[in-house]
């Protein structure tokens, strides 16, 4: 039973971590993008629509094409959200919180509108099974022949491994590369970065666009695997809630990509806790109470986090601050 619990938790953790990684990338450049939930919805809708239209238009849809279309559309659509975010916060210098919240509202509405407009289904509930097959495809051999190890480590679609790889790549980029050093400088002290000859605007734009793109991938990942390739506009509310969880997770992780992995796993374990905890403890617990667990954990963690004194753990120093070079 615990095995199932962990498996479910990992499947849940993977896309939350991916969404948070996109947000983390944006935050490293000093942009607090509260548009994450909206961006996830847009990514989910765009990716699903692309897969759905392709599958209904072609007799024998090729798996490669499904994969490419879904991911590229999701990435492009949500990167566009990042572009809007950057334009307003960096170029127009509008308050980041305001722009972010507006993007969340816009994104959720847009996702609903797009899906109704392009899918044209009476009930609003449709499936794209071939896409689900692609996203849940297991690694041959490794996922079958190793018993428990197979189930625990290899019983997932490719996006999990993509997420882990991305966490490692981002860690290396942030800490070991010139680009990462420059990016962190932009987030810590844009005036310093500017004086050092770094193009602050470009870094902020690229970080927000790529970050949003990654967040959007998490959205479509959530639909294709977690929701088994089924699209229902009502699910957008759930995706939105996951988006907020991802924003909180960034703080939880001390702004370190690798911490996102185990951080999201803890979220995942408690998210599914209501199914297993009462049974494990042998007591009757109200489902409503146990379902609150991940959110209670979030609050507790944020309180603990606020006690930290070490500067490295406090996040980018100019997070949320608009930079204007000629301000006196």
């Amino acid at each position: 039973m615990i095995l199932y619990w962990i498996q479910k938790a990992i499947a849940f953790a993977a896309f939350i971590a991916l969404a948070a990684m996109g947000e983390l990338l944006t935050e490293k450049s000093g942009g607090l993008n509260l548009g994450t939930p909206g961006t996830m919805c847009v990514g989910a809708a765009a990716g699903f629509i692309a897969a759905f239209r392709y599958c209904s238009a072609v007799e024998n849809p090729s798996f490669i094409m499904i994969l490419l279309l879904t991911l590229l559309t999701a990435f492009a659509a949500s990167a566009l959200m990042g572009l809007i975010y950057s334009f307003f916060t960096v170029t127009m210098r509008i308050n980041q919180n305001v722009v972010g919240l507006v993007l969340t509202i816009l994104g959720c509405g847009l996702a609903e509108f797009l899906s109704i407009f392009f899918i044209k289904s009476e009930s609003g509930n449709v499936r794209c099974d071939s896409a689900n097959t692609v996203f849940t495809a297991r690694i041959p051999f490794l996922s079958e022949k190793l018993g428990v190890v197979s189930d625990l480590l290899f019983g997932y679609g490719f996006m999990l491994y993509f997420t882990i790889a991305l966490a490692i790549i981002l860690t290396i980029v942030f800490n070991k590369s010139r680009v990462g050093l420059n990016l962190r400088a932009v987030g810590e002290s844009p005036s310093t970065a500017d004086a050092a000859g770094i193009n602050v605007t470009r870094y902020k734009y690229v970080a927000a666009c790529v970050g949003s793109g990654i967040t959007g991938l998490a959205g479509v990942y959530c639909v294709m695997e977690f929701k088994s390739g089924a699209w229902a506009t009502a699910d957008l509310i759930t995706i939105q809630a996951f988006g907020w969880l991802a924003v909180a997770l960034v703080i939880f992780s001390f702004w370190k990509p690798l911490n996102l992995l185990w951080g999201s796993l803890i979220f995942g374990i408690f998210y599914w806790g209501y199914l297993y905890i009462p049974e494990l403890l042998g007591v009757e617990l109200s489902t409503d109470l146990t379902q609150m667990l991940p959110y209670i954990i979030t609050i507790v963690v944020l309180i603990i986090v606020s006690f930290r004194k070490k500067k490295e753990n406090l996040g980018p120093a100019s997070l949320g601050v608009t930079y204007f070079r000629e301000e006196r």
Binding site: S189, A193, A195, E312
Partner: peptide, 21 residues
């Protein structure tokens, strides 16, 4: 500058090479 253009959480070396190509 009067207000130093340094990143607090970086080491001396990281600050020095910042922005160099």
């Amino acid at each position: 500058h009067q207000h130093f253009k340094l990143v607090d959480v970086f080491t001396a070396t990281e600050n020095v090479v910042l922005g160099l190509k």
